[in-house]
Design a binder for these strands. Structure first.
Ligand SMILES: [Zn+2]
Ligand SMILES: [Zn+2]
Ligand SMILES: [Zn+2]
Ligand SMILES: [Zn+2]
Lengths: 130, 130
DNA sequence: ATCATGGTGTTATAATATAACGTTTGTTAT
DNA sequence: ATAACAAACGTTATATTATAACACCATGAT
C-alpha cells in the first residue's frame, strides 16, 4: 500500500533511463544523460532516486553506488533485496529466489534483533566471464 | 595461507583505532583521530583500510561507508560477511551463523553464476531500541 | 483563504575516494 | 653485502558521491 503510483516528471525521466540501461547506473552518469531534458543539478537526481527507491521501483547497489531497476516482484518495496554482481564485466542481476527470500526474512539474530529488511550482494563471475 | 600477519605501522594504527571503537568508523573520522600520530592524508588511511580488508581484519559496511573490526572467525578473509544494523542507534554487529553462512556459500544463481563471495546486511532495531 | 504536502530549480558545500609521483623500507637472491 | 624487487610511505592534487539550504509553485484539505 501507500505508493502514489503516479510519478512526477523528474522521477519518470530518471526511472526511464535506469530501466533502459543494461547495467547499474551511477547518479552522476544519470545526471549527464538528462541534462538535455533540463535537469541540471545532482539534487534533482538524488531526490528522484530517493523516491524511486522508497517506491521499490529501483534499488541501490551499495557496493557500487549505483542504481538498477527492480525486475522482481518478491522484493516488496525494497525490504528484501539480493543481487549477483560479476566482478569482471560488472553485470548485475537481481536474484529473485523465493526460498532465499523466505529464509532471510525469517532469520533472526541470536542477540534479539528483529529485522525489517535486508540486502544481499553476491560476487563472482557471471556465466559469460567464468 | 598468504597473509603476512605482520602489520605495517600505519596498518596497526588504523586497526587499533577500529578495534577500540564501539561502532563502525568512517575513513575521515579515523583520519582525524590519528593526525597526532603523523598520518595526514586520506590516502594513508585508505591504503591501510584496503590491506586490512584483504587480510580479513576489518570489514566495510557498504550501506554506511564505514569500517568495523572482524569479530568472527567464520568469515574467512572476508569472503562471507553478514551484519545486523540498527536503524535507530546505528549499532552494527557481525552476524556469525554457521548455517546461514553455509546456506549462502552454497547458493548458486539459476542463471549459472558461481559465487566467490557475499555480503549481507540486515536492518532493523536492536534489542535496546525496539 | 490558509495551510500543509510534495515537487521543483538553484547555489553552494560536505563527505568519500582515487590518481600520480617520488621516496623509503623490508625481503630475497646472488 | 649488495643488488633487485616488492610493499609501504608521504604528499599534492583531484575526482566522485552526496547533502544543506532557500525560494518558488502546484495540489488538495480545512
Ligand atoms: Zn526488486
Ligand atoms: Zn561477467
Ligand atoms: Zn568477520
Ligand atoms: Zn539500536
Amino acid at each position: 500500500m501507500a505508493q502514489a503510483q503516479t510519478l512526477s516528471r523528474n522521477q519518470q525521466i530518471v526511472l526511464d533511463i535506469i530501466e533502459k540501461a543494461k547495467g547499474p547506473l551511477k547518479a552522476y552518469s544519470i545526471l549527464y544523460n538528462v541534462q538535455k531534458k533540463g535537469i541540471n543539478a545532482p539534487q534533482q537526481i538524488y531526490r528522484a532516486l530517493d523516491k524511486l527507491i522508497e517506491m521499490g521501483k529501483i534499488h541501490k547497489i551499495e557496493s557500487k553506488n549505483a542504481f538498477v531497476a527492480c525486475r522482481s516482484s518478491d522484493c516488496e518495496i525494497s525490504k528484501a533485496t539480493a543481487f549477483s554482481i560479476c566482478e569482471s564485466c560488472e553485470k548485475v542481476d537481481e536474484v529473485s529466489d523465493a526460498k532465499l527470500s523466505k529464509y532471510l526474512s525469517s532469520f533472526n539474530h541470536k542477540k534479539g534483533m528483529k529485522f525489517k529488511r535486508f540486502n544481499l550482494e553476491f560476487f563472482g563471475l557471471c556465466k559469460k566471464c567464468k
